[in-house]
């Protein structure tokens, strides 16, 4: 079924500068796979080396976080909107104050 994926601003340069992409998928996992097949450069920003979604990549289906649904197995309906929403994290070097390695 046809669904829409909203691309967050920082990832638009890797998705043809598009704000959203329409594609055919029956699950969230299928939709994200389709997206990264279409835009290979997105893959490293969405997935870690183990092929799992990075911890700071949040995916919503019509405003519902897929972590509280069925994760990437969450089924989609015609016209659903999938949003990729960043969370932001970071912090100082933990092992040595000033002058430590980064």
């Amino acid at each position: 079924m046809a669904v829409k994926v909203i691309i967050p601003t920082p990832l638009r340069p890797y998705a043809g500068k598009q704000e959203s992409v329409e594609l055919q998928a029956t699950t969230v996992g299928e939709a994200l796979s389709g997206l990264t097949r279409q835009f290979e450069a997105l893959r490293k920003h969405l997935y870690n080396d183990d092929g799992r979604l990075r911890s700071f990549v949040n995916v919503y289906v019509n405003d519902e976080d897929i972590r509280y649904l069925e994760k990437d197995q969450t089924r989609l309906r015609e016209g659903d909107t999938i949003s990729i929403v960043p969370s932001i994290a970071g912090g100082a070097p933990s092992h040595s104050p000033r002058g430590g390695s980064i």
Partner: peptide
């Protein structure tokens, strides 16, 4: 930026 910063950063 720390290594932790880099691991968690977004482009752009």
């Amino acid at each position: 930026p720390s290594e932790y910063d880099r691991e968690h950063a977004w482009p752009w």
